[in-house]
Simulated assay, not measured.
Amino acid sequence: MLKLASRLPDELVSRREIDAVVNCVAPLSASAALALIRASGRPNPAEPALLQQLGNMDACEKRLDDLGSLLGSQRWLLWANRQDAPLRQLDGLNRFLACHGLASVHLRDASKPLSVSNIGAIALPKPHRRNGARLSVVMTCYDCEPYVDAAIRSVLDQTHGNLELIAVDDASRDNTWKRLEIAAAADDRIRAFRLQHNVGTYAAKNVGLALAQGEFLAFQDADDWSCPERFSLCMDLLQRRPWLEAVSCEYVRLQDDGRFWSSLVWPLQRRTPNSVLFRRRVMTRLGFFDEHRFGSDGEFVARLQAAFGSRALYRLRQPLIVAARRDNSLMTAPSTGLDSLGRSQARADFQEAWTEQLLCRALAGESFHRSAQRGTPALIAEVCSSLR
């Protein structure tokens, strides 16, 4: 950073280079990132978010107006963060969604802040449940009682009708399993299973995949809310483009106080590998998830691209998921998540390890197939035996 700062202002320094350094510095020091932007003498879309991070709301509001076109649709998320009234927060989210051609949402309780558990889809036309290809949505759950009902509703409210929701409770300690039982009793599209011991989300995902019956497979986090168009948009792409094997989308993260948040400060809209939707035949070549406690969705997507080529995955730029930012999730817990500076040494170490493994497999011409690990076959047998 100091080396770059010493060269500014300099027209020979590209905007991309400045943006890359700002994105690295912002989680560590918003003031240092802001100083770098000002030294460059160029407008930067991260500036209002940095000002907001520093608590300089008047300056943030002014830059929101000044940089409107540069900020694009995300200006409405920053605008929503300036609001205290729930309906104003909702208005910001709906303006953001409208920029991406997505349907509006409503508050389930207008007296409470905008949050994942407090939003619902505006009713959209739904096809008959048997129309279209069969989609299996796997949702693993662990101590998600405040959010799981909203996550379930967002799957059942999809504009793609022919789906099943396979909910695997990973030995929750709260009332998550009771919520799943109630939901499954009310809608026959839900198949709920409970593991007797906590095995981690990726081992639980493998159980769900083994039980899935659909021609297409996708995932739903139990503390996320999916836009009603999410699965239709992804499946339409796969059905129109036979060379594609998978589609992913982007997301935004929302706190329970109605504020949108990113560990990297800016941008607020980001990619997420756990949004991947893929053809069943992908499993024939890839097998299951690595059952590491965290980060294995990134490994799965990288393995998919290594096996099928980069053109096999299409990344939709639309934000089709609103994710909860909650304490002690995989992304916030000290042992598995990002620290206060937006870094995670444990995640970096795991990513380095699986990247090296994939490279070695590719160079050796080995298969990218991964068998189920850590007793997953026994878990599957346990779940199946409970159904008899």
Rank of each mutant, 00 (worst) to 15 (best):
V22L: 04
L114M: 00
P48V: 08
S6P: 03
N274T: 13
M235H: 02
T336I: 10
L64F: 07
I182D: 05
D297H: 06
F231W: 11
G298V: 05
S136D: 10
L8C: 10
D149E: 11
C384V: 12
D236A: 14
R347Q: 12
Q357N: 13
R374Y: 11
K3C: 09
V105Q: 08
R75H: 00
S172F: 02
W177N: 01
A33W: 04
L8T: 09
P242Q: 14
D143G: 06
A203G: 04
R293E: 11
E47D: 06
T272D: 10
L64H: 06
R108H: 09
L254P: 00
P334H: 01
F289K: 02
C249Y: 06
L330D: 11
S340F: 13
S367F: 09
Q357E: 15
P9G: 08
L54K: 03
R189P: 03
M331P: 04
L93F: 06
S385D: 13
D65T: 14
V322H: 04
L217M: 13
W243Y: 15
M331Q: 11
D221R: 03
C60A: 15
C24R: 15
I119H: 05
D174T: 05
P48W: 01
E366N: 11
P9W: 11
S263G: 15
A5N: 06
S386V: 02
D188R: 14
R311T: 13
G41Y: 10
Q220E: 11
V252S: 08
F278R: 02
A372S: 14
E164A: 13
H160N: 08
S115Y: 04
L28R: 12
C99G: 03
A307D: 09
G41E: 06
S371E: 13
I37P: 01
A185W: 00
C384T: 12
E11L: 12
R317C: 05
L4M: 05
L114C: 03
Q52W: 13
Q89Y: 03
C144G: 02
S29R: 01
D297I: 08
V148C: 08
V25Y: 01
K112D: 09
R311W: 12
L211I: 09
P267A: 09
A30F: 00
N328P: 00
R108A: 07
V276Y: 07
A103M: 02
D221I: 05
S310N: 13
R108Q: 10
L379Q: 06
D339I: 11
A33D: 01
T159M: 07
Y147K: 02
E145I: 00
C99K: 07
A348G: 06
M57H: 11
L102A: 07
S73Y: 03
K205W: 02
L244P: 00
E229W: 02
L51K: 04
N81I: 07
Y202T: 01
L12H: 12
D66P: 06
L28D: 08
D149T: 12
R189I: 01
S310D: 14
R317A: 12
A186W: 03
L12E: 13
R293L: 14
H106V: 14
S226A: 15
E145C: 01
S367V: 06
P48L: 01
L97H: 08
Q158R: 03
N162T: 10
A26G: 08
D256M: 08
V301K: 02
L54N: 06
F193C: 01
G365F: 09
R374N: 14
R179D: 00
S371V: 08
A186R: 10
L34I: 09
C360Q: 14
V322R: 04
V13Q: 05
E366L: 14
